[in-house]
Amino acid sequence: MSVDGTWNVTVNSPMGPQPSTLTIKAEGGALTGTQSAQGNSQPIANGKVDGNNVSWSNSITTPFPMTLEFSGAVDGDKISGSVKAGAFGSFPFSGSRA
């Protein structure tokens, strides 16, 4: 099953669930796309795909400027993993194909 598509992703952070929409496309070992949250949409960076494993980063400004580093795996129509939020530590994320 391809990782390509649109995903509804929720990060379980200390500030509560943080939903976002992730649209990704694998091209060889590279992962490209956009992530939208809180009314802002921007391209993902450092995207990589290896089989069902995916990773990417996304810079945010709200509630604090930081780079979020996502690492996870696609299993059919589900995606899950963890996101490193700078000095705030790592939090789980999960989602499903939209």
Rank of each mutant, 00 (worst) to 15 (best):
L22K: 01
D77V: 14
V49T: 04
G76Q: 14
K84I: 15
Q18R: 06
T32N: 06
K78A: 08
A30T: 02
M15S: 06
V9T: 00
G95W: 00
I60P: 05
S80Y: 13
S55A: 14
G28Y: 00
P19S: 09
D75C: 15
P65G: 15
G5Q: 11
T6G: 04
F91M: 13
F64D: 13
N46H: 03
P43G: 08
L22E: 01
K48A: 15
A87I: 15
T34M: 02
F88P: 07
P43T: 11
S20T: 01
G81W: 00
V9G: 00
F70R: 02
I24Q: 04
G51E: 09
I24K: 01
T6M: 03
S59Q: 08
T32L: 02
T67G: 06
V83I: 13
G95Y: 01
S36M: 10
N12H: 13
G33F: 00
M1D: 15
R97F: 03
P65K: 13
T61N: 10
P43L: 12
M66W: 06
R97S: 07
V74W: 02
T61M: 06
S57Q: 04
S36D: 13
V3Y: 02
G76S: 15
G51M: 11
G89T: 15
T61I: 13
V49W: 03
Q18L: 12
G47N: 07
G47H: 04
G16W: 08
N52I: 03
F88M: 09
S13R: 05
A26R: 06
E69P: 01
T32D: 00
P65R: 14
S57A: 09
S80G: 13
G39C: 14
A87E: 15
A37S: 14
D50P: 09
T23G: 00
Q42P: 01
L22Y: 01
S20C: 06
M1T: 12
S13H: 08
S94W: 11
F93E: 02
S55N: 07
R97P: 08
M15F: 08
G28A: 08
F88S: 11
N12C: 13
P19V: 12
G89F: 12
D77E: 14
S94R: 06
T32W: 01
F93Q: 06
A73M: 11
L68C: 08
Q38C: 06
T10E: 05
N8K: 06
P92I: 04
T23P: 01
G86V: 14
S96Y: 10
Q42E: 07
N8A: 09
P63Q: 12
G39N: 09
T21G: 04
G29F: 08
P17H: 02
L31H: 11
G33H: 02
Q18S: 07
V3A: 10
P17E: 02
A73V: 09
S71F: 04
S55M: 09
A98W: 05
K25Q: 13
S2Y: 05
P19R: 02
D4C: 03
D75Q: 12
G51R: 11
I79F: 04
V49M: 10
L68K: 05
Q18A: 14
